[in-house]
């Protein structure tokens, strides 16, 4: 975890805004993520975190502003093109393919690396299956590899989603509440894995998280959204002691409604 400055940013947003009708889910959000960082994204419910992820992975149109990934403008790219550039993500509401097996789920999320549909007609690619096996070992799931994803527990599904995000060997991984609804042991496992991926393989992470210890332990920097606007940015310690953030979370009109913008 080195301090990163003066580098070319891996991901950069300039004035990113998203309007739903008259409602501004995001307004003028600027952010930068540098290579090799683990960055946290926090904010009260409904503050626009998931909307931001949806904009970055391009399933939502960006109303205003620009996003650059590896120096390339991805504001108008298609979701699959963004994925091909090396940006992958997980979902707040788990999105694995229940009717496919674990290994099929993993192979699927990297299938585009085959370059061309004809090559997909082979029953399976050996070297890729090798990678999928490696990943299941890494995520402690090798015993359920032939199981249908629908039969997995919630925690295992989270792990599988992380595996699917890692399959194409991305540079930046967006994790949307990877720890929600799973047991503490598994949270530790996920934490270890993220750390290992970051230090050993130099993967960059941007993670939405409600678990404040998770953020404190892992993140180099954190930025805070509230009502679609950037409230603060800094190291975890700075953020925890920031008066505006504390107010946003616990303040008098701290809106703890559960109206998250997602599907």
């Amino acid at each position: 975890m080195t301090a990163v400055t003066q580098q070319q940013p891996l991901l950069e947003g300039r004035g990113v805004s998203k309007y739903f009708g008259g409602l501004a889910a995001l307004s003028d959000v600027d952010f930068t993520v540098y290579p090799g960082e683990i960055m946290g994204l926090i904010g009260p419910n409904g503050s626009g975190k998931t909307t931001l992820f949806d904009c970055l992975s391009r399933v939502q149109d960006i109303s205003k502003g620009q996003v650059f990934f590896k120096g390339e403008d991805i504001t108008r790219k298609k979701p699959y093109q963004v994925a091909h550039l090396g940006l992958s993500r997980t979902f707040q509401i788990i999105r694995v393919y229940n009717k496919l097996t674990v290994i099929e789920n993993l192979l699927l999320s990297q299938q585009w690396r085959n370059k061309g549909i004809l090559k997909q007609l082979r029953p399976s690619g050996q070297q890729m299956e090798g990678r999928a096996k490696e990943l299941t070992d890494f995520l402690l799931m090798s015993h359920v590899i032939k199981e249908k994803a629908g039969n997995l527990s919630g925690g295992q599904k989270r792990l599988l989603e992380i595996g699917m995000a890692l399959m194409p060997d991305p540079d930046l991984i967006l994790l949307d509440e990877a720890t929600s609804g799973i047991n503490p042991t598994l949270i530790e496992t996920i934490k270890d894995r993220i750390r290992e991926l970051n230090s050993k393989y130099n993967k960059t992470f941007l993670l939405i998280e409600h678990n404040i210890h998770f953020i404190g332990d892992l993140c180099d920097r954190v930025f805070v959204l509230d009502y679609g606007q950037k409230l603060a940015e800094g190291t975890p310690d700075e953020i925890m002691n920031n008066q505006a953030v504390i107010e946003a979370y616990f303040g008098a009109d701290g809106d703890e409604g559960d109206d998250e913008y997602d599907e």
């Binding site: 399933v59 298609k78 699959y80 999105r95 699927l108 999320s109 007609l121 399976s124």
Partner: peptide, 29 residues
């Protein structure tokens, strides 16, 4: 039968089950 066993086949199934998800996983649906 061949398609069903191949990666192409389960890509189709992924499109059926969750097309937007497949798109975000890099598949040109």
């Amino acid at each position: 039968w061949w398609i069903r066993r191949s990666e192409f086949g389960y890509t189709l199934i992924a499109i059926r089950e969750d097309e937007v998800g497949a798109e975000m996983r890099g598949i040109n649906t």
